[in-house]
């Protein structure tokens, strides 16, 4: 009888652990421990970026079977991860969140294996996972330099990038043909990357503000621009470089 009681106590406590675990998992989100705010920190829109080829009613079709993630990991890309319970409706669905280390290669293997049709195969150019936006205050090309890292990394190249060359740098701008794969995010030499990928819904909301910012910089007088670059932006870039000491392959 003692063994039985012991087992009962063990299993009661296991049950308690399980309940507390479920409670805990609601709190543990997908928080990132970055020291400095991410690029474009003033745009607080935060949507989920699903793998390529996600259909409109992705959330209602995804059963979280994990095939896409497993395939992605086996191919060595490890871009796909799963959301936590914080995202009520879309929890447990695949996302591509860590683009600084694991961007999407647009190999489209995950779309071929998805059993529910939540991801469907589309040509590379028509993928709309999101849109990458350049933080003009951090980008080297917008602050008196010539840096083509992002456009070189981009799988679509000149279809996506527009350059506004001037004496203030080559000034890259990413247009709406962007697939949101995140390769530019990975290869940006600025500490912590000067590019961030937003999902399309967030982009719709912040689009006006972003374009306004873009135009205001382009129409700025030289004195104002000098002030902006040398007293504000370059110290910021240097500071970020110190904080994010990363190795680039």
């Amino acid at each position: 009888m003692r063994r039985r009681n012991f087992l009962k106590i063990v299993f009661y406590s296991l049950g308690l652990i399980a309940f507390s675990g479920i409670g805990l998992s609601f709190r543990a989100g997908r928080g990132k421990n970055t020291v400095l705010p991410s690029p474009l920190g003033e745009f607080t829109e935060d949507g989920l970026i699903h793998p390529p080829g996600a259909v409109d009613d992705f959330v209602s079709k995804c059963i979280s079977c994990g095939v896409c993630g497993d395939v992605c990991r086996q191919l060595g890309y490890s871009a796909i991860r799963f959301t936590g319970l914080k995202n009520s409706q879309s929890s447990g669905v695949p996302i591509v969140d860590d683009m600084r280390d694991h961007p999407c290669t647009l190999c489209m293997e995950c779309t071929k294996v998805c059993p529910t049709g939540a991801l469907i195969e589309v040509p590379k150019e028509k993928v709309r996972m999101g849109i990458a936006l350049i933080d003009f205050s951090l980008c080297l090309g917008w602050n008196g330099d010539v840096c083509l890292s992002c456009s070189k990394a981009c799988p679509l190249g000149m279809k996506v990038f527009e350059f506004y060359n001037s004496e203030w740098g080559n000034q890259p701008y990413i247009n709406e043909n962007c697939t949101g794969c995140g390769y530019c995010v990975k290869f940006c030499p600025v500490g912590g990357s000067a590019i961030r990928v937003f999902d399309l819904n967030s982009y719709k909301r912040l689009k006006d503000r972003y374009i306004q910012w873009f135009k205001s910089i382009l129409t700025m007088s030289d004195d104002e621009r000098y002030d902006l670059v040398y007293t504000q932006n370059l110290p910021k870039i240097l500071e970020r470089g110190k904080e994010f000491e990363r190795e680039y392959q």
Binding site: I17, A18, G21, L85, D101
Partner: peptide
Amino acid sequence: PVNFGVMIFSASLILLLLV
């Protein structure tokens, strides 16, 4: 990178079923 939220949730749900 690991999503510990998902991991804890899945583990505790399995544990709950075993209990």
